[in-house]
């Protein structure tokens, strides 16, 4: 078995993961990127999406917001503003956030609000999508 990668996933609310993994897949602004041990040293900005962590052949998925990933040899660091395991997603909150964002987008006040609503919308949709997929 190949050497393992040490992955850290940090958000303001929690340290989601600080352990060895076989592989991790993160959603960057240019698409999904798989991380394994001895990866090319790389810094990538993250987009709103998900993180897939595979340890001992078992995958786990988490929804993830904007942030950055830094990988160097056997160590990968993911810093993001929000992350939670898919089974811990507060679906009610996500749905409410989606409604709020929809309302705000409908009124169209000014650019800042629009921006904010757009981001909120992306995040809410991402959570809902991941949640619903996990239920199937």
């Amino acid at each position: 078995m190949a050497k393992k990668l040490h992955l850290e996933v940090i958000s303001p609310d929690q340290i989601l993961w600080d352990d060895e993994v076989d592989t991790a897949v993160v959603r960057t602004i240019e698409g999904d990127v798989g991380l394994m041990n001895d990866h090319l040293p790389l810094v990538l900005p993250l987009a709103v999406g998900r993180i897939k962590i595979i340890k001992d052949g078992k995958p786990r998925e988490a929804s993830c917001a904007e942030g950055v990933v830094k990988i160097r040899e056997d160590h990968a660091l993911v810093i993001t503003e929000a992350v939670e395991w898919i089974d811990e997603i507060d679906i009610e909150r996500a749905r409410k956030a989606k409604e709020r964002a929809e309302k705000r987008l409908a009124v169209k006040k000014n650019d800042v609000d629009l921006d904010r609503a757009n981001i909120a919308m992306t995040k809410a949709l991402n959570r809902i999508k991941l949640y619903e997929r996990s239920k199937k």
């Binding site: 960057t28 240019e30 040293p41 790389l42 810094v43 990538l44």
Partner: peptide, 9 residues
Amino acid sequence: IHEKMNYEP
């Protein structure tokens, strides 16, 4: 030991 960091894009 470190190769140079790459920044993408």
